[in-house]
Design a protein around this nucleic acid. Structure first.
Lengths: 241, 241
DNA sequence: GGTTATTTTTGACCTTTGTCAAGGCGCAGG
DNA sequence: CCTGCGCCTTGACAAAGGTCAAAAATAACC
């Protein structure tokens, strides 16, 4: 079966599963499934009973929470390769957020029960997960910092930097991976604010924006502008889990 | 030696160490030290080399980060019983934030090396730490949500609710555990904003504020006001790690 | 008990972001 | 080539929060 071959390849490449036992990986591949999710497809809802966790194979997935009156807070927007829903293990088997595909995506689903079992049986996996969790925690801490110390334009600059190849020295072209409205919500601002703040960023740094394409002469333009309001030095490692 | 007796008692009561081996606990107690930290005492600085982790025995400890130009973002303010600095294990042995006592405090210091070793040797401890980390992650997620969806007054209301006995049904008296200026920074706002927002909260809910003392007729007053702008139902469990 | 610090509150004003409404742009489908 | 529907931008205005300066209230100290 082609599907399981594909799943196998993806799973074996995940850092978190490098330490897993072969038996576990076999069982995991057996019960893995790929799903096509169109733009807007809701994968699960906050506080649903959780029996699966997921990996983004391609596309983008938004994690978010909603209040009763419909206001929405975006927790994160995940690119290909990221795991989500796995923390339900520690949350009474219920999802701590809702998940929705925001671009046409392929999602792999896997049973939480297997993961739960293997984490208890295999210390190496528990350590790998601990390490991943610590990295995520650091990211969230930084997010909170950014929201308090950076203004809208600086947050956009920082976002662009994280999309770029951080090693590059010359001119760079960046493509926004999803709608600007969505970038705005990811950065905790309104679409209108995003639009205006991007304009301000353009004036301040000389970057060029055409639709979803951003061109910079060099990273320094943005680094000066955004990273001055951040406690970390520029090459912000720790970005990909 | 009295000190080690005291440390032992505290360590044995920590949920995280319930699963630790007796040998580990012995070693831990041997190398534990208590420190008196006056108000304002800096315990370590962001990116210092980390060889110890800590437990707040009494008092309050502020975790924070600073930008080059002096702006400060408060990551958290920890009460007695909380561990900090332990995530340095996953951070290249450097502290991910600075720590300062904001009230006269007693702090226990413990070697990271022991923890590192035991986590690798004892799966149960790794699991306990994983679970603690997951709880913390959830808290951070909620923090980000609050900063985007709640206004200043609502955040204060939410903060008061978390200080209160959540089971109580009748009138309640809450004492602010540290300076209002500090509460403000914990909630990501300026002292002036805090003062005015507290005034607004008073008008809106009928709570009574005298200095550091807050009296409410019942929790409902605050719940209606604050929790409407939050994705979680009221009794916010998951508060203490 | 008076005096000095420190913390908190107020007032006036400014900046940033949110809100509402109207256009504009671009692309898919006819 | 035209039309319609999202997405994005703009303008005008409102609201929230930040800033600066000064007064008021507490707490701390001789």
């Amino acid at each position: 079966m082609r599907e399981s071959e594909e799943c196998k390849k993806i799973l074996e490449n995940k850092a978190m599963f490098k330490m897993a036992s072969p038996e576990f990986m076999d069982k995991l591949v057996q019960s893995a499934h790929l799903h096509n999710a169109g733009k807007g497809k809701v994968l699960f809802i906050h506080q649903d009973t959780a029996d699966k966790f997921y990996i983004v194979v391609s596309g983008w997935v938004k994690l978010f929470r909603e209040t009763l009156d419909g206001a929405q807070a975006v927790v994160d927007i995940l690119p290909a390769g990221h795991i989500f829903g796995e923390t339900s293990i520690f949350e009474n088997d219920s999802y701590p957020y809702s998940a929705e595909a925001v671009e046409p995506s392929v999602i792999m689903s896997l049973p939480l029960s297997l993961l739960k079992q293997e984490i208890e049986d295999n210390p190496k996996l528990a350590l790998a997960m601990l390490s991943a969790m610590a990295r995520y925690r650091k990211q969230q801490d930084r997010e909170i910092e950014h929201r308090t110390l950076q203004n809208a334009s600086q947050r956009i600059g920082c976002f662009l930097l994280r999309l770029a190849d951080q090693e590059a020295t010359g001119p760079i072209t960046i493509h926004l991976p999803y709608d600007k409205t969505l970038v705005a919500s990811r950065l905790g601002m309104q679409p209108e604010t995003f639009s205006r703040a991007l304009g301000k960023l353009k004036d301040a740094t000389g970057i060029k924006v055409k639709g979803a394409t951003v061109e910079l002469k060099s990273l320094d333009q943005l680094i000066d502008y955004s990273c001055s309001a951040c406690s970390s030095e520029f090459p912000c490692h720790d970005l990909n889990a």
